[in-house]
Design a protein around this nucleic acid. Structure first.
Lengths: 239, 239
DNA sequence: CATTTCAGCTTGTATTTACAAGTAAAATTA
DNA sequence: TAATTTTACTTGTAAATACAAGCTGAAATG
C-alpha cells in the first residue's frame, strides 16, 4: 500500500483535481470547464457533489459560473493574495519568496491587553511568539508577528521555519488546517522596528493588518500582526 | 395586494429572515440558531434548502457551524465591513452615515489607461462618473470615485444619490445585484483632493482601494476607487 | 460512586429525482 | 433569405431520503 487511507470527501477531491488543472494550465483563462453532468460521469459522482466542488472554486476565484452556459475559468490574480484564505507562500509562489526569522519561536505570555479577545484557556496556556520578515526578490515586503496559543503543539519551538510555510507545517505536522478568519486593516506611518525591517523611511505609509485565523480545531485560532510595504506590490483579494 | 409578486428563491428568503433576526438582536452572540431540522419545519422547506441559507450566513460571518452541536451566532464586527460583499451603508448601519455628492453622476469617457482592463463594449459606451464622500459622525471617512459602464441604466444621471445607497438603487431600480468582486489595496500618502475631502494633512497615510465589483448581469461590472482615513476606524473583513 | 456504554440529538456528505430558467444553435416558417 | 420557433443543452432551485460523524447526557455497568 502506498499511503494511509484518508477519508477526504469526494467533493474535496474533485475540487483539488480541478484546481490543479486550472493552476497548471490544463484549462486556461476564458476556457469552459466540462459541464456539471460531464464532471458527474468523469468522477462517478452526482450533481450536488460536483456543485459543492465548483462552489469552492467560485469562492476561491478560480471560475465564474453562468446559468445556461457553464463554468468559465478566470484569470489568476497577479497581486499578493493575502486577503483570501491561503498562506503567503501559496499566494505569491515559492520562487521569489524568502522567509527570514527575526525572533523565536519562543513560549511567552500574551500581550496584555491583546488586540483580539482571548479565552481563559488561551490566556493560561501562554503563546508561541515569532517574528518573521518575508522578502520578495530580496526586498522586504512583510513584517509578520505571529502568536499561537501554546496548546497541543509538541516540539513546535524546536522546528525550523526558515523559508518554510507556517501553514504547511501546521497542516502536515499537526493536522491543523486554516479554515478562515477575520482581519482589520489600516494605513499607518512607519516607525521604529517597522522602518528597520521593511527598509522604509520614518513616516512612510505602510499597511497594518491584524488577523485572527481560525482552524479546523474548534476553539483553536491563532493571531498575526502584519506590516506590509505596498510601494511596489498591492495586496489582492476577492470578495 | 401589497407588492409585486417577486420570484426570490426560498433559501434567499430564509437567509434574509435569519440575518434580520441576528442583526436585530433576536439571536445574540453565542446563541444557538434553531437546528437545521427545526428551520425546515418552521419555514416549510427541506434541509438542502436550509443549508443554502446557512452557508450564506457563514460566508457573511454571521454564524459559525460545528458538527454535532449546531450553528452559533458570531459577534458582529465593529469595524467597517467594506471588504466583504455589501455596500458601505449596510456595513456601518444607516444611523451615523451620510453621503455627500461631490460630482456627478455625469456621463463621460473612461480614464485611459484605466486601472482594470475594459471590454470593447464598455469602452464604447462611456462611463457614468460620480464622486462622493461618506461621513461617519459628520467626519469624512471615505472618498469614493465610482465608474459605471453606461449600459442599460435609463435615467440614472437624473436620480438622487444624496444619502442613498448606490447598491440599493441598483438593486431596486435596475435589478442589478452585487455578487462579488476583486480589490487591490495599498497604503499611500494623502495629497491634493484626498487631503481636502478626507480632512487629513498632506503626507498622512490613507488606505487606497481599487475595486472591481461584479453583478448578476453577466459582463456587467462597475469600478470604484476608494480612499479611506483609517485613523479612527479600521476596515474589517472576513475570509 | 465512578466509569463506560449507548441512545438521541446535531451537522456533514451523498444519492436520486424533478422542474425552472437561461443560452445557443438548429429547424421551421413567412 | 430573414425572422421566428423549437430543441437541446447549460446551470439554478428544490424535494425526499439515507447514512456517517461528532456531541451530549442519561442509563447501564463495574
Amino acid at each position: 500500500m502506498s499511503g494511509k487511507k484518508q477519508n477526504i470527501p469526494r467533493y474535496r477531491q474533485v475540487y483539488e483535481i480541478l484546481r490543479k488543472h486550472i493552476t497548471s494550465g490544463v484549462y486556461r483563462e476564458g476556457d469552459m470547464l466540462p459541464s456539471e453532468n460531464d464532471l458527474c460521469q468523469t468522477n462517478g459522482i452526482t450533481r450536488p457533489t460536483v456543485r459543492l466542488a465548483l462552489d469552492q472554486l467560485v469562492k476561491d476565484g478560480f471560475i465564474k459560473k453562468q446559468q445556461g452556459k457553464g463554468s468559465i475559468v478566470c484569470a489568476q490574480p497577479k497581486g499578493i493574495g493575502i486577503l483570501s484564505v491561503a498562506g503567503t507562500t501559496t499566494a505569491i509562489g515559492k520562487e521569489n519568496l524568502k522567509t527570514k526569522i527575526l525572533e523565536g519561536p519562543v513560549i511567552r505570555k500574551w500581550d496584555d491587553p491583546f488586540v483580539f479577545p482571548l479565552s481563559e484557556v488561551e490566556k493560561e496556556s501562554g503563546c508561541i511568539y515569532m517574528e518573521r520578515v518575508r522578502l520578495v526578490n530580496n526586498k522586504p515586503l512583510f513584517y509578520d508577528i505571529t502568536f499561537l496559543p501554546n496548546i497541543n503543539l509538541p516540539r513546535f519551538t524546536s522546528r525550523t521555519f526558515e523559508n518554510r510555510s507556517l501553514f504547511d507545517i501546521l497542516r502536515k505536522s499537526y493536522q491543523v488546517k486554516v479554515t478562515g478568519g477575520e482581519q482589520r486593516l489600516k494605513a499607518i506611518p512607519a516607525k521604529g522596528k517597522i522602518c528597520q525591517h521593511l527598509d522604509v523611511k520614518e513616516g512612510e505609509p505602510v499597511l497594518h493588518l491584524e488577523r485572527k485565523i481560525n482552524t479546523n480545531r474548534i476553539d483553536y485560532s491563532f493571531y498575526s500582526t502584519l506590516f506590509c510595504n505596498t510601494t511596489e506590490h498591492d495586496l489582492f483579494g476577492i470578495f
